[in-house]
Design a protein around this nucleic acid. Structure first.
Lengths: 123, 123
DNA sequence: GTATTTGCAAACGTTTTGCGGCTAC
DNA sequence: GTAGCCGCAAAACGTTTGCAAATAC
C-alpha cells in the first residue's frame, strides 16, 4: 500500500471522530481538508484501511455502514430512540458505569469474533 | 395492524430460521408458502414486525440487513472468515461455552440498548 | 518506468415508495 | 364501507467498479 494524502486524510478524520460516521459523513469531513476528493476514493480508502486493520466497522442495524477509528477496547451504548452510539470505555462493571452516566440499560447484545469450525477446517 | 397471511408467513419463516436471513432470503423462503408474494410486501412486513417488536435486526457489518426471529436471550458468535453468525444460548460463562463448541474467541463487541439522556429529555 | 491511486460517472444491488386493486373486519 | 394490505414497477439510496489521467517511489 502506497501512501496517499487522500488516505491519510480519511484516517485522520476517522481518528478524530468520536461519533461513528458513515462513508458520506466522512466524505463531507474530508472535503474540508481536500475539497476535490471524490466519494469513490473515500469508499476505496475505507475498504483498504479496514483490510489493513487500521479501522473497524461498527455493527449496526442501519442500511449504511458505520466506521470507527478508535481501536481502544470499549463497548457501545445504542439509543433505541435516536440510534446514536455512545462509546463507553471499559470498567470492571459496565452497567454500573453506564448508570453513572445516567444511561439505563434495557437489553444488550454481545458479539464474539473468531473463526468457526468449518472455516478453520478449510484453511 | 390487521392480520394478513403474508405477514403470518414472513413471521413463521423467521421463527423457523436459525440462520439470520436477509430480506431476499426470507422472500425466497416465503415464496414456498405464497408463491406470488412480492418482495415489496416482504420488506413492508419486516418493517412492521420490527416496529411491533416481534422480530429484531441483527447488528451486522454487512450492506444487507439481517433479521432474527428468535427473541430468546442469546449472544452471537461471528466468524471473521465467512461472517456467519452462530447463536449461543446464555450460560454462566460464555467463553467457556464457546470453547466447548470448539469456537475460539479472538475479540468481542458488546452493545447495550436503552434510551440516551438527550432522547429521554425530549420525550 | 511502472504499479498504485485518483476523480468521474456509470453500474449495481438493496430498500423504499406510489399506485390502483384487493381484503379483513 | 373503509382503513389497511397487496402486487407491481419505478424510484431512491448506498456502494462498487471501469476508465483514463495523475501520482508515488
Amino acid at each position: 500500500m502506497r501512501s496517499s494524502k487522500q488516505r491519510d486524510a480519511v484516517l485522520k478524520v476517522l481518528r478524530e471522530s468520536c461519533d461513528h460516521p458513515t462513508a458520506d459523513m466522512i466524505y463531507e469531513r474530508v472535503k474540508e481538508i481536500i475539497p476535490n476528493i471524490s466519494l469513490g476514493t473515500v469508499y476505496r480508502n475505507l475498504g483498504q484501511l479496514k483490510d489493513e486493520g487500521l479501522i473497524t466497522i461498527v455493527e449496526s442495524s442501519d442500511t449504511k455502514v458505520h466506521y470507527e477509528g478508535n481501536l481502544t477496547d470499549h463497548i457501545h451504548f445504542l439509543c433505541k430512540s435516536c440510534c446514536e452510539i455512545t462509546d463507553v470505555f471499559c470498567t470492571p462493571t459496565v452497567p454500573a458505569a453506564l448508570a453513572d452516566l445516567g444511561l439505563q440499560v434495557e437489553s444488550q447484545k454481545t458479539v464474539y469474533y473468531g473463526v468457526c469450525n468449518t472455516c478453520r477446517d478449510n484453511i
